[in-house]
Amino acid sequence: MRNPAQHPPFDAERLLREYARTGNPAIRDKVVEAHLYIASIIAKRFSGRGVEYDDLYQVASLSLFKAIERYDPERGVKFSSFATPTMVGEVKNYFRDRSRLIRLPRRGGELIRSVERAREALTAELGRQPNADELAERAGAEIDDVLEALEMRGAASPISLDALPMEDEENAPLSAFLGMEDQGYERFERGDMLKRAMDSLDERQREIIRMRFFENRGQREVAQAIGVSQMSISRAERQALSKLRDALSESEEKG
């Protein structure tokens, strides 16, 4: 993996001292670019747990900016040593936030909800995160069930509707398996109504409508095909459309 920060003369600490003094964003960007390889490694290590590499890379990369703003060059810590835990922390928080957005099926969901409620209440009461024993006691559950619930909460991860159910088969994406309203009935009904409305026209009007709107031919072309003036076609078309409108609104009122 390319690691530009490792090769001299790149000196992140010197650049960051300069950035702290001048606030020049070009210097900050240079440091960010030189450390994106860490974001890439972190994203690679944490991907495959229900979150895509690209999302994790984005979270880790953005946290580089935070790390730069918080970094104090005078403390003598290497920037990469300071930035990595910051980036890991952001990725961890991303996982936690995401897992709390998921709604699970009832059986597991109820336990998870009661564990989450207990966790929030105990955190407020104790002023710290509770341990598993305290959680189990408050949630009125066995400790093993609480541990499973916590694991289940982390295991629930959303996947894209564009994802293929099985990677090695030529399957349709998951979105193709979602139920939806069948448009066929409506199309059939409209087709039937139009057919009955067309019956209200005489043969010449039907021919004009067919050529104009089903074959998308211009008025002049239709006039030539039938052997009349364009003006006659225009008038006949207007009358035919008016009849069709009446017939269709009558059908809709009946329906």
Binding site: Q129, N131, L150
Partner: peptide
């Protein structure tokens, strides 16, 4: 891991980490 760490009285966030 969760089972082993829970018995060490660690907080749930520490267990997650």
């Amino acid at each position: 891991t969760a089972g082993a760490l829970a018995r060490a009285q660690l907080t749930v966030d520490a267990i997650d980490d």
